[in-house]
Design a protein around this nucleic acid. Sequence first.
DNA 1: CAGATATGTCAATATGGCTGACGTAAAATC
DNA 2: GATTTTACGTCAGCCATATTGACATATCTG
Lengths: 169, 169
Amino acid sequence: MADVKSANPLFLREDELRQAIELLFFGYRDFTGDADRILAEYGFGRAHHRVIYFVGRHPGMPVSQLLAILRITKQSLSRVLGQLVAEGFVQQTRGTVDRRQRLLELTDKGRELERKLTEVQKQRIARAYREAGAEAVAGFRTVLRGLIDAPDRARFDDGEGAPSPPGRR
Amino acid sequence: MADVKSANPLFLREDELRQAIELLFFGYRDFTGDADRILAEYGFGRAHHRVIYFVGRHPGMPVSQLLAILRITKQSLSRVLGQLVAEGFVQQTRGTVDRRQRLLELTDKGRELERKLTEVQKQRIARAYREAGAEAVAGFRTVLRGLIDAPDRARFDDGEGAPSPPGRR
DNA sequence: CAGATATGTCAATATGGCTGACGTAAAATC
DNA sequence: GATTTTACGTCAGCCATATTGACATATCTG
């Protein structure tokens, strides 16, 4: 089982690749489904979740960087971020080194919601990880990382979490 | 490397689980990005892709079954499916055993688009698979399958492609 | 025949994207 | 110090995709 280096190994067959497409479709649908249900209770959507997640992950992040990660326009972000600020989930403070910047961070209320959302997703992943075992998990990460475009792939190299450099897209 | 059965193995640590969340976010975004670009040329969106994909995969599928897979309302499907039929990508024929049913299938034009869309996605997956190797691929599939809710998980067991039984949701 | 089912359609609404235009404050540059 | 660039915000309008609810029609089933 170590010499699978033929020109067209089994795992590159048509139906294997198709299966991957469907695994990603169903997997992502169910993976996001957990959080969607919680968000609905708050009148929020997936867009709010992404903001809450990344702000929670990188406290003090300026708006421009959040835009770069999410790859949406500032007008689109504005509505969502505005709601989160208005309802007290996200807090904006002026930057000290560059006073034009609005640095974003979660409030206690925001952190609580972030925790709830991340919790259900972590549980789903933990269950799948546990059932699959360490080796399968390593494979999962390798393949998924390989599906990501090079610029953002670096995010999963080293310390993981380092914001990608400007001009990545 | 065979006795990782402690109460809380390394791969279940907080940061490992968080990394999985981000891998899925970035991975799915880039995975769908390829097809999105092609679809835009046709004035279609992701919704059209899903219809084309599943109809192509299961020719002769009735509308009700497509609704069950996509988990959207018939009103939502109606607009998208209507466009695809109007523009000659999908063809509807009355069922013979049950004449109330509209059985869906791709036209030649539809099959051609399906092929183009699936092709770019297969290429991305094939590259990641090739770089990762057979064992990693096996792990990827095991974990991803574990992320899927039980009803649809069966889709990836046996012959794979068997439509899930009625009442799955 | 009565009722359930498969499909379609009309209308109204929400969410989350987009482009374009314009404004303001602060930093950076000449 | 004046000018230009940057970071951010906002107004206005558009599009795609989803929702709920109500109703219509044809067909199947008991």
